[in-house]
Simulated scan of single mutants.
Amino acid sequence: MRKVCFTIPPEVHLLDINGPAHIFYEAKESGVAMALHFVSLDHHTEIKTSAGLYFNRLEFFESIELQAGDIVFIPGLDYHLISDKNFVKLIRPFLNWVTEQYQKGVHICSICTGSFILAETGILNGQTATTHWKYFERFFEKFPKINLLKDRLFVSSKNVHSSAGVASGIDLSLYLLEQFYGTKLAVDIAKEVVIYFRRSASDPQLSVFLQYRNHLDHRIHNAQDYLINHLKEAPTAEDLADHVHMSKRNLTRLFKKTCGITIGGYLEKIRVEKAIALLAKKNKVDFVALQCGLKSTNQLRTILKKHQDVLPTEITPLSK
């Protein structure tokens, strides 16, 4: 039974907490063994949100016993509180508790300005993190020991995770579900809550999106969308550069810098995922090769052979 603990600070931002909470609620409804807890940072059982809505009947954080693999979410709240030294001093027991949970192997997740609370614990020192774009400079000035990434929807470093804010907390939640329970569950939950992943309806695989769509550069998102939507046409780097109005050299450099993978490497992974999806539906191998923008079934088998570690059992023989 995995415990997922949602902390409710004063003036919490509603979607920061409700978005992830609903994702894990849907996972629980689908049969995953987990318990959801909603806790306050002090002994108050009722908290007013930034929108004026109240949470009540909250548990006190110290009453929750967690173990390795459990999850704690720290949502965003109004900045005037996290910049108040008295407030930070007041929640010091909670900060110490978060540190203890982290040391036990609990996954600690911040959303939006919740990263400031997480940073106050010290566990982010020497690690990478992100926060809401509006507070980059303030975060960097206050926490210079943290490697702040400015172009990420969310960042995972060991068992501590941070997200840019609001909807990215949902992205992070789906990512965690995939890590813990597999891609199928994450895809099913995404469908249940009608999440659009910047992908076409015919190519809904989640893993490549999570690995290489975790950035905010719209030009590269545009390039990735083009590759996915024109896979059958076997687009070249020149085609891609023309589409996003960049030189081939600049696009190649920026793509690798932003995604951590070359255009060719990304295209190959898309082909593998597309092939797996089509083969699982019992399509003929020559049809699959064509849909993946390949000239022959031999090319398809060569690519699948390079990625045997991710192939389902029933598809593996095709790579022999």
Rank of each mutant, 00 (worst) to 15 (best):
residue 320 K to W: 05
residue 203 D to V: 05
residue 310 V to Y: 10
residue 45 T to I: 08
residue 126 G to H: 10
residue 211 Q to G: 02
residue 228 I to M: 14
residue 232 K to M: 12
residue 310 V to W: 10
residue 107 H to D: 11
residue 229 N to Y: 02
residue 49 T to P: 00
residue 274 K to G: 01
residue 87 F to M: 04
residue 188 D to I: 02
residue 257 K to T: 15
residue 125 N to D: 13
residue 11 E to P: 00
residue 19 G to C: 08
residue 74 I to Y: 01
residue 63 S to C: 06
residue 296 S to P: 11
residue 316 T to R: 14
residue 176 L to P: 07
residue 57 R to K: 15
residue 272 V to A: 05
residue 223 A to N: 06
residue 62 E to Q: 13
residue 165 G to R: 03
residue 305 K to A: 09
residue 17 I to P: 01
residue 90 L to K: 15
residue 196 Y to W: 11
residue 287 F to H: 14
residue 76 G to C: 00
residue 83 S to N: 06
residue 133 W to R: 07
residue 250 N to R: 13
residue 70 D to C: 03
residue 200 S to A: 12
residue 152 R to C: 11
residue 120 E to A: 14
residue 211 Q to T: 02
residue 93 P to T: 08
residue 92 R to N: 14
residue 291 Q to F: 02
residue 189 I to S: 02
residue 314 E to L: 09
residue 175 Y to H: 15
residue 194 V to H: 00
residue 101 Q to F: 02
residue 221 H to V: 06
residue 207 S to G: 02
residue 85 K to D: 14
residue 286 D to V: 13
residue 241 A to M: 09
residue 157 S to Y: 14
residue 79 Y to E: 14
residue 308 Q to W: 03
residue 294 L to V: 09
residue 273 E to N: 08
residue 26 E to T: 12
residue 13 H to V: 09
residue 101 Q to S: 06
residue 278 L to V: 08
residue 130 T to H: 08
residue 117 I to M: 13
residue 93 P to K: 12
residue 225 D to Q: 14
residue 99 T to P: 01
residue 291 Q to T: 04
residue 252 T to D: 15
residue 102 Y to P: 01
residue 216 L to R: 12
residue 292 C to P: 06
residue 118 L to C: 06
residue 30 S to L: 13
residue 193 V to Y: 01
residue 3 K to A: 07
residue 34 M to V: 04
residue 316 T to Y: 09
residue 276 I to C: 04
residue 177 L to S: 05
residue 56 N to R: 15
residue 100 E to D: 12
residue 208 V to E: 12
residue 139 F to W: 12
residue 146 I to D: 02
residue 141 E to G: 12
residue 265 G to C: 04
